[in-house]
Every structure is written in structure tokens, then in C-alpha cells.
Design a protein around this nucleic acid. Structure first.
Length: 427
RNA sequence: GGCGCCGUGGCCGAGUGGUUAGGCAGAGGCCUGCAAAGCCUCGUACUCCGGUUCGAAUCCGGACGGCGCCUCCA
């Protein structure tokens, strides 16, 4: 199994199964209903975990929830804890409805404060951090490799709002003293306050996966500064931290300008309600995980048509046969190329190699495409009545009944086998 | 301005030196009371300009275009 790492800028080989494989994936800051873009890393890395397990690896998948942060304070002044709790529940619900299960651990920043404080103390005592008026900052100059992940020339970094407490503009906050309007704060050796954005990930990852693990996942947009800072603070205290750094490409909204009004953002909830989770998963499957993908009605309609074609093959005569599973292993073991895997699935579909197809779809949480629900009795009765009308060559009545069935969200297809028709859900 | 990614047929999207990607849409056909589904046939694409090579979508250089990040956005 080879995976591309942002850190080394090349493909990295995974150790042979069973590993173990520790996988940490940066999660969202919870202050609103998660949008579709947030779903991409969750889906990509959930798929990867499922595939690694199918290949015999012992995987521990950790995905955090950032439930203390400036954006939460801003979104709910004086009631941030309440909003964070609500939005956490939303996220778990939304992401759970994708049909991929949940990660092994979903730690919250607010439940990791003790570990965060311990880590900051280690950084301070080793000279990699300093305390100023209740704030604690990471001392970038103490870590020579700073910038290795994002390839930023750190000496040219300018700050928009200079912070006079910092020794160096590049330094970043590990701990922030509590301010007016913030309703959550914890006591620490540095004073009452709350963690900065980056330290929580280092603390949670090390707590659950140890000081060295295989994979770190995140969206490409947080390579800098978040992942860079994470890496720096962990390595500064002597941890190897993650070996392979994977960054998924962005999900884009085409045809819609970067309008300041947030009208062009759709939530995971809305997308699943409109298209169904299978269509959304198939849409994401169609692009390699490192490439950008455009979200639009047209691309979603194409995914929907593909979902339908997979459902149809399982509804047809069962011609189960082989299917070259080794080919799928080759494709996915080479940097997890899901777009090519999708092409292989279509080939299996066309050749009626349904055993392999069903197994392959299940890896990606799409096993439900192979299952057919039965229609309500009222619909089935209409379909029988239509058969009767057809037998009597009363096609006007037959067409009328078909329209009724369609209005109820079902499609009737005439087939050779008994009872002569098949009912298919259309929405 | 800095760091990085990308540009494939109407649309989506693999492919990294020479043999068919695949899907969606479209056209014709088989099948059907009419459909739907399925099957068959049909498109010889690779932003542009140079270069390397017997040969480039694939390697190198440049141009143009698009995108991400540059202190808290997955």
C-alpha cells in the first residue's frame, strides 16, 4: 500500500499488515451545521480505514471535535458551550447518516484539557514555548525544521494584526488567557484560560495513538498554519508524530461566485436529503482524493445516474460470477485511486460479476445499492391492476395506473419473470 | 508578492513515452402495447508555443487560464 505524503512530497510505503495503523484526521470546529466540504475528509478517510481493514490492517481511526475556539465564541457570545454541544450532536448525526460508521474515537478538545496543559508544560520547560501575561506561545525560532510541511519560507511571514506579546510574528498561541465574553475557561499553571487551536490535535493524537503513528489526514486548506504548527509542537517535544501526511483536495462550488452571502454553501444534511447518501458517496468516489472536485447539480445528477445503474444490475437476473478482486487491490493500494476503482465497478457491473461488485461497493459504504426494498401494498395492488388491464389490452387504464404509481414515487417495469412486473423506488 | 496544485472529447474523470480507460449526456438499432431497464453500434480528446526523442496527453522550458494556502476555513 502506497500513499502520497505532503511531508515527503512522494509516495510512502505502508508497513505490511496487520500494522498497527494509527490514523488521526482533523475534524471540524463546531459552531454551525457542517457543510458538504466538511464531509470530504470524513468520507475519504473513513473509506481508507475501511479499505485498510479489508486488507488485514489493525486500524485505529481518531477524528477530533474542536469545541472551543474563537469562531464558537463569536457565533454564540456567552453561550458557546451550549452551541458547541448542539453542533457536535449535529455533526455526529450528519456524518453518521453517510452510512460509513463512525471513527473509533471522536475526542473533544474540552475533554482533553489536562493532556493539553501537560504538553504545554513540556514545551515551556524545554524552551520551545514561553509564558507572557497568561498567554503561552510556541517559540518558532527554537524549532529549525519549522515550515517543512507547507514549505513556507517562515522568515517572510507577515502578521496582519501584530501581537506585541509575541517574541516573533511567526509564534503561535498554545494557551490564551480568558477574556471578557468567553464563557468557558480552565485553570492552568499559566493562569485561567483555554487552549489555542493547534495544540489540541497534538495532545489528542498522542493520547490516543501514541507519540508515533502512521497517518495524519486533513483538508488541503489547513496545511498551513494548523498542520505545520501541530507537527512543530509535537516534534519539538521529541515525538515522531505522524509519518504520512495526507491532504484531501477541496470541494468546490462551480458556477457560483465567491459571494459573501453564504447562500452558496450547502450543508451535509441538505445534500443527503435531496440526493441520498449513496449518490453523494458516488460523487466523491469519482475523483481521486487529492484532486479538487466540483459540486453542482450536473455532477450530482451524473452520480445519481450511476447509483441507479448499480441498483438496476442487482435487480436483474442474478449472474453472479468471479470478478478480479486482485485488480481492485492493485488500484486502491496505489495511492487509493477511487476514481479508477469506480471504473472497475462499472466493468464488473457490465459483466455481471456481482459478487465482487457487491463486496467492492460495501468497502465504500454502498452495499445498500445491492438491496431492494419492497413496495407498499397499495402500490403493489395498483401494479397488479395494471397487469390485469394490460392483459385485457386496456392500455389507457394501464397507463393511468402507471402514472399513479409514478406519482407515489415508484416506477413499474415489465419483466418476463413472475409476477410480470417489478417495482422500483424513484425517490 | 511567497509556497503549492491543476488544465484530457458536450459534461465528469482515470491514464505519466508507443496497444480500448470508465461514467453521464447525445444519435441509431434490438427488445416493448407504449415505456423503463438491459444489450449492440457510433466520438480517434489531451490549453498554447518551443525543446528532448525514432516516437509525448505522458519528460523539460516558457506562456495563458483556473484553484488552494500565506495565523485560526476540511
Amino acid at each position: 500500500m502506497r500513499l502520497y505524503s505532503t511531508l515527503s512530497r512522494r509516495l510512502e510505503q505502508l508497513p505490511a499488515p496487520p500494522g498497527p495503523i494509527g490514523m488521526y484526521v482533523c475534524g471540524p470546529t463546531v459552531y454551525q451545521r457542517a457543510h458538504v466540504g466538511n464531509a470530504r475528509p470524513f468520507v475519504v478517510f473513513s473509506w481508507l480505514a475501511r479499505w485498510l481493514r479489508a486488507r488485514g490492517y489493525d486500524v485505529t481511526f481518531v477524528h477530533n471535535i474542536t469545541d472551543v475556539n474563537d469562531s464558537i465564541y463569536e457565533a454564540a457570545p456567552g453561550a458557546s458551550a451550549d452551541l458547541a454541544a448542539r453542533a457536535t450532536a449535529w455533526y455526529v448525526e450528519d456524518v453518521g447518516s453517510l452510512g460509513l460508521g463512525l471513527p473509533d474515537h471522536m475526542p473533544k478538545a474540552t475533554e482533553t484539557i489536562a493532556e493539553i496543559v501537560t504538553m504545554i508544560e513540556r514545551l515551556v520547560s524545554s524552551g520551545h514555548a514561553y509564558v507572557v501575561e497568561g498567554d503561552v506561545y510556541f517559540r518558532v525560532s527554537s524549532y529549525p525544521d519549522y515550515g517543512e510541511l507547507s514549505n513556507q519560507r517562515s522568515d517572510e511571514m507577515a502578521e496582519q494584526e501584530p501581537n506585541p506579546l509575541k517574541e516573533d510574528p511567526r509564534d503561535f498561541a498554545l494557551w490564551k488567557r480568558t477574556k471578557a465574553g468567553e464563557d468557558t475557561a480552565w485553570d492552568s499553571p499559566f493562569g485561567r484560560g483555554r487552549p489555542g487551536w493547534h495544540i489540541e490535535c497534538s495532545a489528542m493524537a498522542e493520547t490516543l495513538l501514541g507519540s508515533a503513528f502512521e497517518i495524519h489526514g486533513a483538508g488541503l486548506d489547513i496545511v498551513f498554519p494548523h498542520n505545520e504548527n501541530e507537527l512543530a509542537q509535537s516534534r519539538a517535544v521529541g515525538s515522531e508524530y505522524a509519518r504520512i501526511w495526507m491532504h484531501n483536495g477541496m470541494l468546490r462550488f462551480v458556477g457560483e461566485k465567491m459571494s459573501k452571502s453564504i447562500g452558496n454553501v450547502q450543508t451535509i444534511r441538505e445534500v443527503i436529503d435531496r440526493w441520498g447518501h449513496e449518490t453523494f458517496l458516488l460523487f466523491l468516489l469519482s475523483a481521486h482524493w487529492r484532486k479538487p472536485i466540483d459540486f453542482s447539480d450536473e455532477t450530482m445528477e451524473q452520480a445519481q445516474a450511476q447509483a441507479e445503474s448499480f441498483r438496476n444490475v442487482f435487480r436483474g437476473a442474478k449472474v453472479d460470477g468471479g470478478g478480479d478482486w486482485r485488480r481492485l487491490e492493485e488500484i486502491l493500494d496505489d495511492d487509493f485511486n477511487t476514481a479508477e476503482a469506480l471504473a472497475l465497478f462499472h466493468s464488473w457491473r457490465a459483466h455481471g460479476e456481482l459478487d465482487a461488485l457487491r463486496r467492492g461497493l460495501e468497502v465504500f459504504g454502498l452495499g445498500s445499492l445491492a438491496e431492494e426494498g419492497s413496495a407498499p401494498l397499495a402500490i403493489e395492488e395498483r401494479a397488479r391492476a395494471r397487469q390485469q388491464a394490460r392483459a385485457e389490452r386496456d392500455f389507457g387504464e394501464a397507463d393511468r395506473l402507471r402514472e399513479e404509481i409514478e406519482a407515489a414515487g415508484w416506477e413499474v417495469r415489465d419483466v418476463a419473470e413472475s409476477p410480470g412486473f417489478r417495482l422500483v423506488r424513484r425517490r
